[in-house]
């Protein structure tokens, strides 16, 4: 077993995963520090789940180096599994046990589990503790998934689209739970489609598109300064839409007003949200990646 100690909780170098003819992940490097909450973002089929499942030990990589809590997940034994918690995407289990029975059972598999009643309270299912899981709503079952992932007191928690099917209130409650886990020092790797969720919870985010990490950084820096520059948009007398990116939107609006001599039609000043930046990055990646792949393959060879 590879037990090389590294400073990072997760360390990935040159990760590559090929399914037959299809390259799902290409040349991916990533470090996640102990105690950090990292969000992995990307469209469906971008290689997000493949990457996470390699880290969880469910899939084998084609090449590259991976270390999770100092262990190669392809050879992670039971000692290693005690230290991680996994919340998978939706499951279809029969759900014949009650919430409490299921959690007690999972707690019994770990050496130092959390208190079952506290975990049930933390995911807001006290009222359903004695109900069979099959009888819960989709969002409530998802909370059971989260509870099962944290009951073993993991050092590193994988959350794969955890709040799918939650109502807004349940999501806010869930965010509170994740913040408290983070405060206890849990390292968290989150994949999500909700960018507000990433913005709320994560210290840093990485965006995967077409199997590559197209950007990585602190939530308020990702995409670079240019992508965050405000946009001024208006329509001229002929009805044509104009759009200008500027650091001085107020001055620009003033100059437009001066030019047309009256209130411009459809005037907007837009500060790009994380979602706008994300969509911009994913779009760029899908248009300009073909040549890059050839370059890197030569570089690897």
């Amino acid at each position: 077993m590879n037990t090389t100690r590294t400073d990072a909780a997760v360390r990935i170098r040159g990760l590559r995963k090929v399914y037959g003819e299809v390259t799902a992940v290409e040349d991916l490097d990533l470090d996640i520090a102990h105690g950090e909450t990292f969000a992995l973002l990307g469209p469906n089929g971008a290689g997000k789940s493949t990457t996470v499942e390699i880290l969880e030990g469910y899939r084998l990589r084609t090449s590259g180096e991976v270390s999770v809590l100092g262990v190669d997940p392809a050879r992670g034994g039971l000692d290693w599994k005690q230290r991680i918690g996994i919340v998978l995407q939706s499951t279809g289990e029969t759900g014949l046990l009650t919430v409490t029975e299921m959690l007690r059972h999972f707690a019994s598999l770990y050496p130092n589990p959390r208190d079952v009643d506290e975990v049930i309270a933390a995911v807001g299912l006290e009222a359903k503790a004695k109900t069979r899981i099959a009888k819960l709503s989709g969002g409530q079952q998802r909370r059971v998934d989260v509870a099962l992932g944290i009951v073993g007191r993991p050092e590193l928690l994988f959350l794969d689209e955890p709040t799918t099917g939650f109502d807004p209130e349940a999501r806010r409650q869930f965010w509170g739970l994740i913040r408290s886990l983070k405060a206890e020092g849990t390292t968290i790797l989150l994949t999500t489609h909700y960018l507000d969720e990433a913005a709320q919870l994560a210290d840093r985010a990485g965006i995967i598109a077409g199997g590559r990490l197209v950007d990585i950084g602190a939530i308020d820096e990702i995409g670079g300064a240019d992508a965050r520059r405000p946009i001024v948009r208006w329509r001229d007398a002929a009805g044509t839409t104009h759009e200008v990116r500027t650091d001085e939107p107020g001055l620009h609006v003033a100059s437009v007003v001066a030019e047309v001599g009256r209130e411009p039609d459809g005037l907007e000043v837009i500060r790009p949200t994380l979602e706008d930046i994300y969509l911009g990055l994913v779009r760029d990646a899908s248009t300009g990646s073909a040549n890059e792949i050839d370059d890197t393959e030569e570089a690897l060879a």
Binding site: Y58, L78, L88, T91, G92, E93, T94, L109, P111, L148
Partner: peptide, 18 residues
């Protein structure tokens, strides 16, 4: 066979259950 296809085994495989 059911536990294999409905995700039960995948979940258990991620725990320290031997």
């Amino acid at each position: 066979a059911l536990e294999k296809s409905n995700g039960t085994l995948k979940r258990l495989g991620g725990t320290p259950l031997s």
